[in-house]
Simulated assay, not measured.
Amino acid sequence: MAIIGKRNQLTVLKSAPPGFYLDGGPHGELLLPGALIPEGAKVGDTLDVFLYRDSEDRLVTTTEIPHAQVGEFAYLRVVSVAPRIGVFLDWGLSKDLLLPIREIKQEGVQQGDWLVVYVYLDAKTDRIVASMRVKRHLSTTLPAYAEGQQVNLLVTGETPLGYNAIVENAHFGLLYHNDISTPLGIGLRIDGFVRAVRDDGKIDLSLDRAGHQRIDVNTEVVFDALKKAGGRLPFHDDSTPEEIRAAFGLSKKAFKQAIGSLFKERRIMITKHGIRIADTQPKSVSK
């Protein structure tokens, strides 16, 4: 069954001057305009298409890929403002996405602004729209994440404590300032790790794995990077957090812990010019 606001795998039923007509099940035959037909596609093929309503309220399909589907959160740019109606957002399709005025959370939204929104199907109009009231669309069920579990994050805002983030497109979490070595951008999508799930359902997050597991994993990340670089890398205590994050995907704190552990194991040497693999590696003991 073809679902509005989602990518669907639909079969081409016939070809006509306007384009292909696809099997939409209960929705009937759905047009894929000729300009959007993939090269080499033919009747009988199954195509990956997105289903939505055009400006004349007709259900149509497109091979364009939106930045977000129904049921997802996204960080989108305002392309135009329509007084008394709302604003329109660029979501990757030729037809812009409406953020109705009732769903705008802040005053003074202007063209060019970037907003964190939730994309949903309006029950009254059956049209895809956006909402800035993201908290009402988060899951109310208690998260079942395990400590140290890797999760996908969307950074939504900064607070005195740290950065708010949406976890796995479903729950609310917080990255604390004292665990972050460099500022984060709103709208950033990044992988993080669960530190704890609180009784209120909110999630404490980190950009690094917790405890000894984190240190063990990070030491191998650094050591593997050293081996791939021929045994030497120009990173040390004075390297910037941005340089370290770009090179290893680690915070500066995690990097320092990792090289400290590697040094204690006599696997690397730390110099003013960087780090290098030690000339003599500790030998493994055979049993």
Rank of each mutant, 00 (worst) to 15 (best):
D279K: 11
S251E: 15
I268G: 03
H236R: 12
I186G: 05
A225T: 14
A144H: 08
A146I: 05
T271P: 04
F255C: 00
R267P: 02
R266F: 08
H273W: 10
D279M: 09
F235I: 00
L154W: 15
E243C: 08
N218C: 09
D199S: 15
L207M: 08
D237G: 14
E243D: 11
L153M: 04
R232L: 08
A165W: 02
D279Q: 15
V197A: 01
V222L: 03
G192A: 07
A170L: 10
S206Q: 04
L233K: 08
V151W: 06
D224A: 12
K252D: 06
G211R: 15
S284E: 13
F248E: 00
I270A: 04
L153Q: 06
R214C: 09
G231S: 09
S251I: 00
Q213S: 12
S284N: 08
G162C: 07
L233G: 02
L188E: 06
V217D: 11
G157F: 01
G187T: 04
N152T: 12
D237M: 08
S239Y: 12
V222S: 03
L174R: 05
R232I: 08
K256R: 11
D204H: 08
I244C: 04
K228H: 12
L207S: 08
G211I: 01
G187I: 01
R266L: 15
A170T: 13
D204V: 05
L153T: 06
M269T: 09
R209S: 14
P241D: 13
N152D: 13
G185Y: 07
L207A: 01
D179K: 14
N152W: 11
H236N: 14
L188R: 09
K256P: 03
F223G: 00
G173Y: 02
G230L: 10
K283A: 15
K264A: 13
M269V: 14
D199H: 15
N152H: 11
R232N: 11
K272M: 07
D279N: 14
D179T: 13
T280E: 13
I186M: 15
E243F: 03
V221R: 05
I203V: 08
S206W: 00
N169P: 06
M269N: 14
A144N: 14
G157N: 07
K202P: 05
G192E: 04
G260H: 06
G157Y: 00
Q149H: 04
I215M: 10
F255K: 01
D208Q: 15
V167D: 12
Q257E: 12
I277C: 02
G230I: 04
G148Q: 05
I180H: 09
G201C: 03
D237C: 06
I190Q: 08
L205I: 00
D179I: 03
D179R: 14
K202H: 10
L154G: 01
Q149S: 10
A254L: 06
R276Q: 12
A225I: 05
N218W: 14
K228L: 11
S181F: 02
G211V: 00
T271F: 01
R195H: 14
T219R: 15
V167Y: 01
A247N: 10
L184G: 02
T156S: 10
A278V: 04
L175Y: 02
R209D: 11
F263G: 03
I259S: 07
